[in-house]
Amino acid sequence: MSIFVDQQTRLVVQGITGRDGSFHTRQMIGYGTKVVAGVTPGKAGQVFDGVVPVFNTVADAVRETQANTSVIYVPAAVAASAIFEAADAGIPLIVGITEGIPVLDMTRVLPYLHERGARLIGPNCPGLISPGRSKVGIIPGNICRPGRVGVVSRSGTLTYEIVHQLSTQGLGQSTCVGIGGDPLIGTSFIHCLSAFEADAETDAVVMIGEIGGTDEQQAADFVQQTMTKPVIGFIAGQTAPPGRRMGHAGAIISGSSGTAAEKMAAFARAGIAVMKRPADVVPLLKERL
């Protein structure tokens, strides 16, 4: 098993003919992901790289190819519209890579998805990968190894750093999920922790948070009350000044809330082993596996 994506994933790429969309579609196909369709309005009838049929709408793509997962690479100005479209076409899992979607757009998108039972991962995320099975998004496949550690993170390259530590020291991953760095996201730490807890092929979870908001604190409560599997946690931004947006739109300390110290303390109280630096991940996991 694994969570959210596996060999059953049939992927439609929204924005397949764009610069990022075409580059990453090739990477995903190379990794073995079943990319069954692409969508770019006005380009229906084209065949991407001779293998992936392109459609004008997601609804057409779903009807013709039975796509069950979508990944979105379109520019921020039209990304909310792309998410609405995927949900309307009945796609149950939508992965939003696009960075820079206005938060107020997301206040309208999220209830729409909720009513249709669709799950959004992201936006502003690197996507997810179940090593050896399927990759949806931009996480480099070559740094991952199949295995039994689940990884969930608000970050991109910091996730790669930690996955790299795991892989090079013999700990493979069941699934690595980047949930995104924006203030409003479709899938929270808790959703992922709960899926990892239920996954028979995951033995432990690494959770990578950062400053801003209270998602990590709520996740800590969930771990304490519900999880039986060991959880290791890291928080980026211990040296971040308050009131400044640290790259990610969601990474901002407001007043005295959302600090790294507060989140690390919540982790410790919940019995989550707290990493002081990325290199602590393997020793802490090995103590608990």
Partner: peptide, 11 residues
């Protein structure tokens, strides 16, 4: 990357 940038400052 923003997350890695913060983690680097912390390190």
């Amino acid at each position: 990357g923003a997350g890695l940038a913060m983690a680097t400052m912390d390190l």
